[in-house]
């Protein structure tokens, strides 16, 4: 039952995100952006399926899938990297403080 999974996941999301400190709301947005690009697996699926199944629109499917892979790949790497960059700014500072 996908709907059950969906509703339960909404609740998990609600309680987890409530605990996020306001100071880290920007990294929260960038990391959720990165993980929402997990739809890339479905895009890869369609590129494979366009070859496997005997469909008359195989080429079109392949192209659509490849475009989706391109866009979401930018997002995945970009999203995780910018999050990492932000988070290191938040944590590095403690060390530099001790030095002073």
């Amino acid at each position: 039952m996908l709907l059950t999974v969906f509703v339960l996941a909404c609740f998990v999301g609600y309680y987890v995100v409530l605990k996020v400190t306001p100071a880290l709301h920007a990294p929260l947005m960038s990391v959720t952006n990165a993980i929402s690009s997990v739809i890339i697996i479905s895009a890869v699926d369609y590129v494979f399926l366009s070859k496997i199944s005997k469909t008359q629109n195989g080429d079109l499917c392949e192209w659509l899938g490849l475009c989706a892979i391109f866009l979401t790949a930018i997002n995945i790497v970009g999203g995780f990297m910018i999050t990492k960059r932000m988070l290191t700014m938040f944590s590095v500072k403690k060390n530099s403080n001790k030095e002073k």
Partner: peptide
């Protein structure tokens, strides 16, 4: 971030279209 969100949106459109055309006409 706004730019990144647009990419997810467009990606979702492409996948939905691919999903439709895969079985279309069968």
């Amino acid at each position: 971030l706004a730019g990144f969100h647009s990419l997810v949106g467009m990606g979702a459109v492409f996948i939905a279209l691919a999903s439709f055309f895969l079985t279309y006409g069968m």
